[in-house]
């Protein structure tokens, strides 16, 4: 009731006269005299309705078509066309894509470099996601304390989030430089020598994770902070009265109450890391070897270095399906477990 009223009020200005004429001119079909008259009335009503219907559908189409066209052209069509390309072989230069069925998928799933790519992707995403949640929450708890200058600290922590990935990556390349970088200086102070960060296959992925966390954590912290500040006071008072310790309160009250926020953070971070591209491009180019080649970088490599549209498209479909599954699982989990206020 409330909903439809809202709908009506909100649409009234758009539909103008047709609405007014309808509400005054058409009697409800249940009112009528003998069968014939009723039939005639019904027919008139139906005809009117039909005309009105088509007019309204037309208006509907006119109103939604710009959006539908945009979404269709730039969202759905690329996905559909990509799915088609993934079943072809094409170098993007010569004539037309050649149909090869599932060949691209088969060669991907059996190739050892693709296994490395998937391993890198999972390691990268997993570490960044867990790191973001843990450190982000810890920071948020810290920022939530009533200490002087916390506004400033919050701003500082959030700042990296709004800097572009390429700039952040360039900056960190300087920091990581083993010959004149800040990291070398800091590590030397504590008696350690700097690893060759991005050019050492054992450290390159770790470098990326550090930078990605550094850039993303401020955002996560702010989201958690907003969550913390909207928590109800009364449950904490009750817990206090019952003599719960700080850790218990945090684990049994804060964490469960924050689960919608955690859910949001998980979705955002997982999608963000799966799509990580700019920092990899600037910092490592997927190397050394393929130590930092994640799925999104691999798609680029196949598409624009190897000019292999089919294989790139197949990898993109795999990314698409993974994200679809992740989102599906998260939605399902969220419905069961997440406590919304």
């Amino acid at each position: 009731m409330t909903v439809s009223q809202t709908v009506q009020t909100s649409t009234t200005p758009l539909e103008g006269t047709s609405l007014t004429s309808h509400s005054t001119a058409s009697p409800p079909s249940s009112i009528g005299g003998d069968a014939g008259a009723r039939g005639a009335a019904d027919r008139t009503v139906t005809r009117r309705r039909r005309r009105r219907h088509s007019r309204e559908y037309l208006l509907f189409l006119v109103l939604v078509s710009p959006n539908l066209l945009l979404i269709g052209t730039f969202e759905y069509w690329p996905v559909i066309y990509n799915a088609y390309l993934s079943l072809t072989r094409w170098n993007m230069l010569s004539g037309v894509p050649v149909w090869v069925g599932l060949d691209n998928y088969q060669s991907l799933l059996t190739s050892s470099s693709f296994h490395t790519v998937m391993y890198n992707t999972l390691l990268f995403t997993g570490t960044v996601v867990i790191g973001s949640v843990v450190i982000g929450l810890a920071l948020a708890v810290l920022f939530n304390q009533k200490v002087r200058g916390r506004g400033f600290v919050r701003t500082v922590a959030f700042a990296p989030h709004i800097v572009s990935g390429a700039a952040v990556a360039t900056l960190w390349l300087f920091i990581f430089n083993p010959d004149y970088g800040l990291s070398r200086f800091v590590l030397n102070q504590v008696g350690l020598s700097s690893p060759r960060w991005v050019s050492d296959s054992d450290w390159a992925l770790a470098s990326l994770i550090i930078v990605f966390l550094w850039k993303g954590i401020g955002f996560v912290a702010i989201v958690y902070l907003a969550g913390l500040q909207s928590l109800p006071e009364d449950v904490y008072e009750a817990a206090k009265l019952d003599g719960a310790r700080a850790w218990t309160t945090f684990r049994r009250i804060t964490l469960p109450l924050l689960s919608p926020v955690t859910f949001f953070v998980l979705v955002i971070t997982i999608i963000g890391t799966f799509q990580a591209y700019d920092m990899i491009a600037v910092m490592t180019g997927g190397g050394p070897g393929n130590a930092t080649t994640t799925l999104s970088w691999y798609i680029y490599e196949q598409g624009f270095q190897a000019s292999d549209a089919g294989r790139a498209a197949a990898s993109a479909m795999i990314l698409f399906v993974i994200l679809l599954i992740v989102t599906g699982l998260q939605t399902k989990y969220a419905q069961r477990k997440v406590h919304y206020q």
Binding site: S199, D200, S201, G287, P288, G289
Partner: peptide, 9 residues
């Protein structure tokens, strides 16, 4: 990619 693997390990 192969060279980087050799040069980095």
């Amino acid at each position: 990619s192969g060279l980087q693997e050799i040069f980095s390990s």
